[in-house]
Amino acid sequence: MKIAAIEVFGYQLTYAHGEYVMSGGRAAQSQASTLVRIRTDDGQEGWGESSTLGGTYLPAFAEGIRAGIQVMAPALLGLDPRNLSVIHQRMNALLLDQQGAKSAIDIACWDLLGKAAGLPIAMLTGGIAQADFPLYEAVPLAAPEAMAEFVRLRSLSGINRFQLKVGNDPFEDALRTRRVIEACPADAVIVADANGGWNLQAAMKAVSEMAGLNVLVEQPCRDTADCALVQRMSSLPLSMDESVTNAAELYRAKYEANACSVNIKLARVGGISGAIRMRDLAQDLGMTICIEDVWGGDVTSAAVAHVAASTRPDALLHASFFNDWTREHVAGYQPRSVQGRGKAPMAPGLGIAVDAGALDAPLFQVAG
């Protein structure tokens, strides 16, 4: 099996609940997503997806994702997509970092590997450790009562895990957190996620105001070292996200910042390959893990589902299905959550069928 062509498609993903708001005024009603289809010389095809959350969440943006793929794609023609090690060696020889672009290609290669093996990806990434798993939903930053009402409404769908957006005024953020906790049952899992939005002083004030609440604090500051300083002042458990980009940063998160949990996003670590490597390290370190991506639709949700399903139940805090958060569906709204829980599709590869006919013409194609 050899890569014969790589096609890149673009489409918009509209947020299902109006406007997605994070700290620092970062907000959007829709996001651009990039789909990759890899065609092989024996007539097979694999799909991958990568979507940034605007251009200010991570050092990545939609046009950069597409440009990165265009640079790497010619060098991948003729390679066996099932040989992920060689695929990544070739991509890394051409571009430093650019993990979002590499992630879309990586996911498509895993889709092809699973199809060739006749197995779902989860069976190839450690085996299916859990038939289903808990999902969380993000609560956009808003007035405290509005965030509490969002939680009450989404709880009707069976969701019992929420990541509320904070990272602005620390006193208002503490009030937001209290109102959300009051709106949830006692066994709910609540994460107050600043997305690195607090400076050091604001973060220290926020964790002081939240002391005693049943909540995890996620990525209070942008840098791991600053998060470590904040954690020394806090009695709340810490989860890390944006600054954990490799194994060294994962060790720093645990042993310098005293984090007990880590959020692993596929596009931040180069796709499924990077996610399972980081996942296995985090499990060995005794940390809990959130498995997700930066943003995305059906293809992203399927990729996340396979990594989550092959994660040990005691280690998986929760995952996210972004196709529950967005209106557009390229694979028939599969996989789909049920009462706040998700499953990995059991057909070979990603286990979903992308409707290429519903997409616009490719943005570009690279073929041999």
Rank of each mutant, 00 (worst) to 15 (best):
C290F: 03
L363I: 05
C221L: 07
Y57A: 14
A309V: 11
P140I: 06
M233H: 05
G64Q: 06
F133Y: 00
L13Y: 12
V8N: 02
G127M: 13
D80F: 09
R39M: 10
R176P: 09
I352E: 01
S235Q: 04
A275N: 00
M123E: 15
G158H: 10
D314E: 08
P59S: 13
L13F: 10
V230G: 05
A93Q: 02
Q334S: 11
V8Y: 08
D169N: 05
E63S: 14
K115Y: 13
G68M: 15
S157N: 13
P313I: 09
V217T: 02
C184A: 05
G64S: 15
I190V: 13
Q31F: 06
R66A: 15
V299Y: 07
H329R: 03
G126F: 15
V244E: 04
A143D: 04
F171K: 05
I264P: 00
A183W: 01
A257E: 04
M233T: 08
R336N: 08
A62I: 10
E172V: 01
H329K: 08
G212Q: 00
A108I: 12
G48P: 09
L363D: 00
Q99H: 06
Y57F: 08
R152N: 02
L266Y: 10
G46K: 02
A367D: 06
S51D: 10
E137P: 05
Q44D: 11
R277F: 15
A186L: 14
A302S: 02
D280R: 11
S273M: 12
A194S: 13
A60R: 11
S33I: 03
C221G: 00
I291Y: 03
M278T: 06
S30H: 01
V71W: 10
D169R: 01
K2D: 14
